[in-house]
Amino acid sequence: MVPAVSPANAARLRIAAVLVCGIVMQTTFGTDLRIEGVAPDFMLLLAVAGGLAAGPGGGAFIGFSAGLLADLSLTATPLGVYALSWCLVGFAVGWARLNVLPEGRPVQPLVGLAATAGGLIVLLVVGALSGQGAFTAAGKAWLVRVGMVEAAWNAVLVIPVTALMRRAARGTRGADRLGRTDALVAG
């Protein structure tokens, strides 16, 4: 007899599946979507969507997992740089979603823009603290270009990806808490 899976564990499995799809898309399709030489960052997008869908704790965990997958697929930076950066982004977006941001799709593209810019700054700081010159080697102009292109992609994709993440995270404590808060505000 197959043991029943609790709603929380089922949600974790769904989130894991979304993250694995994300890293596969990032390392395959992502490079074909370059604009001005800059590829989108689907893993940062998933961290942002995780914060919006699952609150600060869930956002931090989803961001950490997304970053860890990005770390594993790269060799240029120490393992953990992206995990730490995207963990902080997921937590910050989740905290803002719980305490400041209203429910609703119109605000999500703005969150995508701001969180991407903030995420890149966090990545640069974490990279600098861990002694990595790779992030700044190409110069400020390249960083600005990366920020603009990634922010544009994330602003466009954040609505469908957040909807997907919200479905995946249904049943977790963070997502349920966000749902109750939204119901209270609406009611």
Partner: peptide, 18 residues
């Protein structure tokens, strides 16, 4: 939990970088 994740990340970074 966030503190734990940050701690794990920092441990990984220091292990790899060192």
């Amino acid at each position: 939990m966030v503190a734990l994740l940050v701690l794990v990340s920092l441990t990984l970074i220091s292990l790899d970088a060192s």
